[in-house]
Amino acid sequence: MIKFCYLAIFLILVHHLVAVQSINAAAPKKGVSRNPADFLSLGYYLKKCPEAESIIQQKVGAWIQKDFTLAASIIRLHFHDCAVRGCDASILLNYRGSERAAYVSSSLRGFQMIDDIKETLEKKCPRTVSCADILTAAARDATVFAGGPFWEVPFGRKDGRISIAKEAEMVPQGNENVTALIQLFKAKGLDILDLVTLSGAHTIGRSTCGPFLNRLYNYNGTRKPDPSLNTYYLKLLKKRCRHSTDLVYLDVITPRTFDTVFYTNLKRKAGLLTTDQDLYSDPRTAPFVEAMASQPFLFENQFLVSMTKLGNVQVLTRNEGEVRVNCNYINAR
């Protein structure tokens, strides 16, 4: 395992170098097919709305100061958005039959924060800053306020006009196997390293007991607990999960600290969700878990790379989509 861990560290460093070079690369030459993310830029709002980024940062900080758990909620909301139709703010659309209205989205939070930011930006720069850009930047700022790394967010995303409740089920719910997760990430242009790294966002945040109750009482229909679950952790979870709606921290040791204890927990068989714990039992992902657990700087550096990649998934740019006036509804035509 040690040999594979060193190999994983080497691959992470190479991946990080290639990703950074890609992010900083010059725009493709004329005639070359361009990825929509190529039209995003760090200076997109420099003249249109120069205070946009600082307004988002200040608002996110104020909300998290009132309720620290919102940091994880905003990161999760961003992931749910990008996992369906790309990062187009479709998760924010609020009407019957939308992703937001789906049962699997019922535990999502942070919508009021985004509405607050949008309202302020509309007063400052009407019809300029998209909800997709707001959510992407808010996820970055939430990470920083939680103690995680900072990264530059390129802007220019447009908001989508379509949101379908059934599609919200594409987002992992905590019981998928590693193969299914790898396939989902691959479809979004993300790889195994991104999967392991972005799962590390569970270093903060909470989950309702519903998604993992089967691990406590009836794992795979055996009427017994999941044998891979740490015995002491099992007893703790049974005490805290009286109802499926009860909340427990994803990282039982340092739930309010953005660190690598999440990965250490997996090695101790104290991963809360099946999707998390399986990362350490699957040979394709285990070496990366080992590397992250033993080298915190690798996690932080790779997290900013993977989050940048996530924020660029299937974005709408230029004449695609729109800039919503209200993040909850598409613009009137």
Rank of each mutant, 00 (worst) to 15 (best):
F4W: 15
Y6S: 08
A8L: 00
F10N: 13
L13T: 14
H16Y: 11
L17G: 07
L17S: 10
A19K: 05
A19W: 11
V20N: 10
S22R: 10
I23C: 11
K30G: 06
R34Y: 01
A37C: 11
G43R: 14
Y45A: 02
K47V: 13
K47S: 12
K47F: 10
C49P: 00
I56K: 10
Q58M: 12
G61N: 15
A62Q: 10
A62V: 11
W63E: 08
F68D: 05
I74Q: 07
L77E: 03
H78V: 05
C87L: 01
S98L: 07
E99M: 11
Y103P: 09
K118N: 08
E119L: 13
K123S: 06
P126F: 06
V129H: 02
V129Y: 03
S130W: 12
I134S: 07
A137C: 14
A137Y: 15
A139C: 05
R140I: 00
R140K: 00
D141I: 06
A142C: 04
F145G: 13
G148P: 12
E152T: 13
F155C: 02
G156Q: 00
G156L: 00
I164G: 09
A165S: 14
V171S: 06
P172S: 03
G174H: 03
N175S: 07
N177E: 06
T179R: 11
T179M: 07
I182T: 08
I182Q: 11
Q183N: 09
F185T: 02
K186L: 05
K186A: 07
G189E: 10
I192A: 08
L193S: 02
L195R: 07
L195G: 04
V196T: 15
T197I: 06
G205C: 02
R206W: 09
C209K: 05
C209H: 03
G210R: 14
P211S: 01
L213T: 06
L213A: 02
Y217V: 09
N220G: 13
G221L: 01
T222E: 01
S228P: 01
Y232C: 08
Y232W: 09
K235R: 10
L236Q: 15
K239M: 05
C241Y: 08
C241W: 04
H243W: 10
V248S: 03
V252I: 14
I253E: 12
I253T: 14
R256G: 06
V261L: 00
Y263G: 06
T264P: 01
L266M: 12
K267H: 12
K267F: 06
K269M: 05
A270M: 13
L272P: 14
L273D: 03
L279Q: 12
Y280L: 04
S281Y: 13
D282I: 12
R284P: 10
P287L: 05
F288A: 05
A291L: 04
P296A: 01
P296D: 01
P296Y: 00
N301G: 12
Q302E: 12
Q302K: 12
F303L: 06
K309C: 02
L310R: 13
V315D: 00
E320K: 15
N326A: 02
N328D: 10
N331F: 15
